[in-house]
Amino acid sequence: MLSVSDLHLSFGGIKALQGITFEAKPGEITGVIGPNGAGKTSLFNAISGFYTPDRGRVAFAGRDITGLTPDKRAELGIARTFQNIALFRGMTVLDNIKLGGHTRLKTNVWQALAYFGPARREELAFRAEIEERVIDFLEIDHIRKAPITALPYGLQKRVELGRALAMRPKVLMLDEPVAGMNREETADMARFILDVQEEFGTTILLVEHDMALVMDICSHIVVLNFGQQIAEGTPAEVSRDDEVIEAYLGAAA
């Protein structure tokens, strides 16, 4: 579904990514793990189109998308959440989620100015859809009119997931969805991620430090360390890998 091959990226002297190659299989959850500064977020940024790789390519459904801008990639159906929540803070939960639907809505400027007619029809159908597929699904009915700033951290993360889901993405990239959450919130989020996979068949890329979660829900894992891909395989394979064990022990020490 989504593949990167021989991806290289550097910031001045820092080599953030050095020859990353893997594929996220359709409908599966692929985990990307590694110690702090390993290059996980940089990899996501290269896939989203915020960073242009020095070398290598990103392909989506067999098509090379390395040269596309972020908005064009979103149009193809690649959605993501950010490590440090990037919601629209001036808006309500509902408006944030509505923004996720931007690429799927068709209203043009003229229809928007008139509102009554095609724009209204589309808006109402869309509202009904997100109420069911996003707001009910993520159990956030009670906060739909709340401003983002009034929400606790865990709920903000959930709303950001909701915004991504409103896109009906084919590929969903989650950058540390449970970071900073307590155990209960983490369990909820894990359930939502599995529900997304099951109900919508979405291909998911997951960056996460919570090893229990990663080992639990990913079918395939890519391990990065200092920008290098040091291992790849099933959770069982990866957790047996000597280099992986060393990288994590080294980071912990």
Binding site: S48, F50, T69, P70, D71, K72, A74, E75, A79, R80, F82, A86, L87, F88, R89, G90, M91, D95, K98, L99, G100, G101, H102, T103, L105, T107, N108, V109, Q111, A112, L113, A114, Y115, A119, E122, E123, R163, M167
Partner: peptide, 27 residues
């Protein structure tokens, strides 16, 4: 009316956080 639809929402999104707007597919 503009701000009841995707067009106006896109404007506000650009104001609030432009990279987030881009990731939502807003050119």
């Amino acid at each position: 009316n503009l701000f009841r639809t995707r067009v106006g929402r896109a404007f506000i999104a650009i104001r609030d956080r432009d990279y987030s707007a881009e990731i939502m597919g807003i050119s």
